[in-house]
Design a protein around this nucleic acid. Structure first.
Length: 286
DNA sequence: CGCTTCCTGACT
DNA sequence: AGTCAGGAAGCG
């Protein structure tokens, strides 16, 4: 569930605690979350002694630059959490890995479902997750323009929801922000890419940028995800217009938010604000 | 292109 | 017991 705004919030709140710190020890409780290297000893061996130089983010990947030119990359997927704190006796349920830092503080990786994981990339780039190299522009990057979005949907018969969930098209969106953006743009989730008219593409682009920025400002939607070591949740959950609101009244029109399955995902939308596509919407056939 | 798989807990 | 949650890789 962590999407771009949630990962960005994690990055911002961890950075002051981690930058400049050196990892002094690593304890692996579940090797299943190690993506590269996949064994605890090599993983710990490569991380211990490295200093964290900077925290970056690309899409939903958190990237920690290390002093040797390598990188420590974490993807939270569904239930992953990074928690910085100083209480050695504190052990969250589903604690999978703990890194000890040279100031006595700790960075815990917690992941109930173990879908997330981490990568240690050496200075030559060995170990980079494959998906990272295939990402489209970040939803908040200036390179993500209306023209880029137009190019991504052009000629595509896939649903717009499916296209937006594809990280190769735009990086950082997940189920929540896609539903929110489509509602804000008044586009039905099953509209095909090729059916979108230029004005609709521009509207969708503006909606994506707006909801993602709002999510960052609100420090994300909290769902087993906390912005810092004190476990304080983000406020975006209270600002959602459609996600999780099936059966409730649409804030825009008063109609009832509906639920469907689109691109294999639970999907919330307003049938009145987001009208059902008609066949061959907006595209002449020859 | 969409569907399945991974993974585990909450809910019906 | 069965269904759902869903990010992303993999498959047909």
């Amino acid at each position: 569930m962590p999407e771009l705004p949630e990962v960005e919030t994690v990055r911002r709140t961890l950075a002051p605690h981690l930058v400049g710190r050196t990892v002094t020890a690593v304890e692996v409780y579940d090797a299943g979350i190690l993506r590269h290297p996949t064994s605890p000893a090599p993983f710990a061996g490569a991380l211990v002694g490295r200093r964290v130089r900077a925290l970056g983010r690309r899409g939903k990947y958190l990237r920690m630059a290390l002093s040797d030119g390598g990188e420590w990359i974490v993807h939270l997927r569904m239930s992953g959490r990074l928690l910085w704190h100083r209480e050695r006796e504190r052990r969250e349920r589903f604690l999978r890995l703990r890194a000890m830092l040279d100031d006595g503080s700790l960075l815990d990786y917690i992941d109930m479902r173990r879908l997330g994981g981490m990568y240690l990339v050496d200075a030559d780039g060995v170990g980079v997750p494959a998906g990272l190299g295939r990402l489209g522009p970040d939803a908040v990057d200036p390179a993500f323009t209306p023209a880029h979005l137009a190019g991504v949907v052009r000629g595509r018969r896939a649903t717009i929801k499916g296209i937006l969930l594809d990280q190769r098209a735009v990086a950082g969106l997940g189920n929540i922000y896609v539903d929110e953006a489509l509602h804000a743009a008044r586009l039905h989730p099953t509209r095909t890419g090729e059916s979108l008219r230029p004005a609709e593409v521009r509207r969708l682009h503006a909606a994506i940028v707006a909801v993602v920025r709002e999510g960052i400002r609100a420090q994300g939607v909290s769902f087993a995800l906390y912005r810092d070591g004190e476990g304080r949740p983000g406020e975006m959950g209270e600002r959602l217009r459609v996600y999780g609101r099936a059966g409730l009244a649409c804030y825009a029109c008063g109609g009832t938010i509906a639920r469907a399955r689109v691109a294999g995902r639970g999907t919330a939308y307003c049938p009145r604000c987001q009208p059902e596509p008609r066949r061959q919407t907006g595209r002449a056939r020859c």
